[in-house]
Write a protein that binds this DNA or RNA. Structure first.
Lengths: 251, 251
DNA sequence: ACCTGAACACCGTTCAAGT
DNA sequence: ACCTGAACACCGTTCAAGT
């Protein structure tokens, strides 16, 4: 996994588009030459300048090629971005050894945390989540790994599916609201400052709560919400099975 | 609230940009003529064709004006979209009467549900959440209302702030992953079908869980995750105060 | 003093012409 | 057979010229 700069990937099939551009696949039996290199360089550019500033001409220049060449491998800019998203998802690594001895709560925390860290490393890729649900090979592998983990811990299939979805949506939602891709300076401290600077007369509740938020870091806030979800899941899980694992109670 | 087609709003100040374009404000002491009409029509267009297809020329045409005129009221397309987002947030209405007699869990469920419904009504506006944290007048009013509700129920300020953030991020994350703005056809059923159609040999966990997902609706899945969060919050809240409100247990 | 047509410097995508 | 320069039809934004 995480083939982040290899020469080329075998045959990019239909995976990358959930539905929107999905019709335009299946055709293109062309030679898969520098496909993965194009994607790797595209990710580089997106990481540097953001999705908004990313340009087909930039990409072509960096590959010392023309824009027309790109269309021999991909049908559109959007398809390239879909591949970029999956490349990023390939960076999510949860070694089986790290999950082995743990209870499901610890394992899920680890998985969610790894996912969150990857999103933080590539904040400029986040807009792509608004455009597609990740069903590329790496996205599917991640999904399979986490769902399998829950099932292995005795979760009923429907509970596993819903828990996975709730956690996944939370992580993505948190990452999206936490890091705006195009602005370079805005971070959590700024926002806490902003909320604390509001007029306490017109926004009493915002002012009262902002003071307490200022002391906390983004990671703390992330894990707080994650813990809430896991606690809720544990309730449902314990009701069906008899294994209420006492929470590790770490902040 | 929800001034959705009025003639004009008083003085649009600096609110709309959290940080990115925020420097370009404060100047512009121009006459606030058709400002709110521009925003209302912009929302109409975004609802119809999406953010991607939205064009300054479209907007100008619909106002029977030129694109240059738009720049007399707004400094950029992004500023217009920020106003559009806040206009949408103005549609979130939680009547005090509906919250009055309820416990905090019921009240928060109502608030989150109203928010979610508005996002579902304007899925094309979702990409804007990737670009900014909503600090416009309506966004601030919503934040104040919900935070105030938690405080009124005896929540400690830090717990209120974190609970609000966790729920907000979850709702946005769910809405974003649930509805892709540019594709017109993809919905949850499609996705459930897709996950159920994967090869059970290579993706056993995905296949096993997809069967159960197919039976559920998007709204059910949304409320499932919301319930998880509320259950987790109740644990923390009950620990500090003595008011463990028994959950309404309505799946 | 206010408005705006027409232009500017781009963009994603295509295709005819090159090798 | 494969590649790509140059063009096409746009885009957001600006500004000089109109009223």
């Amino acid at each position: 996994m995480s083939h982040d700069a290899g020469p080329l990937t075998p045959g990019g099939h239909a995976w990358w588009a959930a539905r929107p551009v999905a019709a335009t696949i299946a055709r293109r039996g062309r030679p898969p030459v520098g496909l993965s290199r194009i994607v790797a360089v595209a990710l580089e550019i997106v990481d540097e300048v953001g999705v908004q500033a990313f340009t087909m001409r930039m990409l072509a220049d960096r590959l010392s090629s023309g824009t027309a060449t790109l269309y021999r491998y991909f049908t559109s800019k959007d398809e390239i971005m879909a591949h970029v998203l999956d490349l990023v998802l390939g960076e999510v690594e949860v070694e089986p050894a790290h999950v082995a001895g743990r209870n499901w709560q610890e394992a899920m925390t680890l998985a969610a945390d790894r996912f969150y860290r990857v999103l933080r490393r590539h904040p400029n890729v986040l807009p792509q989540f608004v455009r597609q649900i990740p069903v590329g090979p790496n996205g599917m592998a991640n999904r399979e790994r986490v769902l399998g983990l829950l099932l292995a811990h005795g979760f009923a299939p429907d509970l596993a599916a819903r828990a996975f979805q709730a956690i996944g949506h939370y992580v993505i939602g948190f990452a999206i609201q936490q890091a705006s891709p195009d602005s370079t300076d805005r971070d959590a401290k700024d926002l806490h400052d902003f909320f604390q600077s509001v007029d306490a007369a017109t926004f009493p509740a915002i002012a009262a709560t902002a003071t307490f938020l200022r002391a906390s870091t983004v990671d703390e806030e992330f894990h707080f919400g994650l813990k809430l979800l896991l606690t809720g899941i544990d309730h449902l899980h314990a009701r069906s099975v008899g294994s209420t694992s006492s929470a590790p109670g770490s902040s």
